[in-house]
Design a protein around this nucleic acid. Structure first.
Lengths: 152, 152
DNA sequence: GAGGGAAAGTACCAATTTCAACTAATTTAA
DNA sequence: TTAAATTAGTTGAAATTGGTACTTTCCCTC
């Protein structure tokens, strides 16, 4: 017999969906209107900027951004067309290729980051107390861990 | 001067993104493979099933599912083609129309609901303690409230 | 060192989503 | 009462996404 969700559980679950949806839209629209970047672009720029050589293997980047290979390939293609990244072939493994941050990509990130981070604070971090935010993070961490383990 | 995110904050934020992304994928894949429905389909079926007459105005449905009007229109079009809903015109306001649950739509929901709810439990509710889950819900509630108010 | 399987990445196609323009009906206000 | 502004909803084209098949290279085992 199915154990249905209680009204409270239902409410929590819907809040979770709503929070993510609204937050994502809000941040995306901000980023898009002020800097012409999508969140997906931004996430990739961040990942690349965090590496030593401003480059990352395509598959690593896909895994890190939770995108399918196909999606990432399209995404990087668009960003390449926009001049934000380049592709370089990988000499150690000739099947592979790197996505490399261009100077323009680095600049775009530098330009966009302050407003984006401020947005994350305004809409998320500052809306919650420190402990509430931590609780949110911890819960989400558990969820991701559970799902990841399970699909092994 | 921008106040950057601390490592902990960064981590919480990324966990939030990851949790939603993974959960959404997981539930969607389950629903799709077992019942041929997407989460979007399911959400609409639920909303309609919760009303008195199994019908809802398009705009109300759009608002309730946080979808754009256009997206909802396409979505309902697809569901109509699949026989899950019908459109009926609204006599009080002749611009408007209702999405109405068909018997097949009701059945599809009845068929899919147990597995879906179980999935929500398995991947979300049961992974957390009662208080953790409540904390997640409360935090998300605050986030949605904050964003909604602001765009007034 | 040859063959078979796995991995990296892309390309193509179908499905979904977005954007902007559009029609038609309603409301407002002069 | 009628013209302008709003609102409901749809449409079609363009952009994004997802699935799968394909190519190339690597790894493993014999």
């Amino acid at each position: 017999m199915t154990k249905w969700l209680s009204a409270d559980e239902q409410q929590s679950w819907r809040s979770f969906i709503a929070a993510w949806t609204l937050l994502n839209h809000q941040l995306n629209d901000d980023l898009q209107s002020r800097h012409g970047l999508t969140i997906a672009d931004y996430e990739i720029l961040v990942r690349l900027s965090e590496t030593q050589c401003r480059r990352m293997r395509m598959s690593e980047l896909a895994e890190s951004t939770l995108a399918s290979r196909s999606r990432l390939s399209h995404q990087v293609g668009r960003m390449e067309a926009a001049g934000l990244v380049t592709r370089e072939e990988c000499t150690e493994d000739r099947r592979g290729s790197f996505a490399v941050l261009t100077e323009a990509g680095w600049q775009a990130l530098a330009d966009a980051a302050p407003a984006h981070v401020t947005g994350v604070r305004t809409h998320l971090v500052d809306v919650l107390s420190k402990s509430e935010f931590k609780a949110l993070g911890d819960a989400c961490q558990k969820i991701t861990t559970a799902i990841s383990q399970e699909s092994d």
